[in-house]
């Protein structure tokens, strides 16, 4: 099946974003894959074929984003989905955190999502349908030592989405947040063994989640089955926050 509609997915070159792209393609979306990693984008494009369209861009750069937005409008089917997935961490205790570490994480995770959403939302508004999903984190809900910057950015995504929901819900556009728990990716691969053990002891499901399990939730929220679900935060965390 081909939906003849494009989903813009940021950070889609690897990790959870790549898994989201794969899943969306499998249900018929064309994916505009936005990432800074040109090589990883090219590798993914080779593996995923026609429906995966790579665009090398830093989402903090408004000028680059504008260019990508007009290229996508010209080259791909109408944009009806936006997935704000690109995210970074710069962990350290607040007493030691530099202003640069704070700013960079807010710039990419929160302001980047705002910029990407703004760059592409008119097309959803005109189509009078579509879905926007932002990838937050359980850390945005419960906090984590060493992550004041990251948690603030992830909680910020929730406020942004809930407000945008109030602007757009009347247009048949859903705006939701998925809050992953601890997921098996490069982000969690390099955790010290004792931290990993500590995490596991706190997860009722007694395992880390898989990227594909985040992708499934995102695809569901973007599917016709979820048309009446909007403004929510969906934790996908093995019971961690419940």
């Amino acid at each position: 099946m081909n939906l003849n509609a494009t989903a813009v997915v940021t950070g889609a070159a690897r990790g959870i974003g790549l898994e989201i792209a794969k899943k969306l393609i499998s249900v018929g979306w064309t994916v505009a894959a936005l990432d800074m990693l040109e090589d990883d984008l090219a590798t993914a494009a080779e593996a995923l074929g026609e429906m995966y369209k790579p665009y090398t861009v830093n989402i903090t750069d408004s000028v680059q984003l504008k260019e990508v937005a007009s290229a996508v409008a010209k080259e791909l089917p109408v944009v009806k989905g936006i997935v704000n997935n690109a995210g970074i961490t710069r962990d350290t205790l607040m007493m030691r955190m530099s202003e640069d570490q704070w700013n960079l994480v807010i710039d990419v995770n929160l302001t980047g999502a705002w910029k990407v959403t703004q760059a592409f939302m008119r097309s959803l508004i005109r189509a009078r349908e579509g879905s926007i999903v932002s990838i937050s984190s359980v850390v945005g809900l419960v906090g984590a030592a060493g992550q004041t910057n990251y948690a603030a950015s992830k909680a910020g995504l929730i406020g942004m989405s809930k407000s945008l929901n109030r602007e757009l819900a009347g247009r048949g556009i859903t705006v939701n947040v998925v809050a992953p728990g601890f997921i098996e990716t490069e982000m969690t691969e390099n955790l010290p063994e004792e931290v990993r053990k500590d995490y596991l002891s706190r997860i009722p499901a007694a395992r880390l989640g898989l990227p594909v399990e985040i992708a499934e939730s995102v695809a569901f929220l973007m599917s016709p089955s979820a048309k009446y679900i909007t403004g929510i935060v969906l934790p996908v965390d093995g019971g961690l926050t419940t």
């Binding site: 008119r122 508004i125 757009l168």
Partner: peptide
């Protein structure tokens, strides 16, 4: 036109 239409139109 609603408020979103108006903004869209202005843009």
């Amino acid at each position: 036109a609603d408020s979103l239409d108006m903004v869209d139109l202005m843009m």
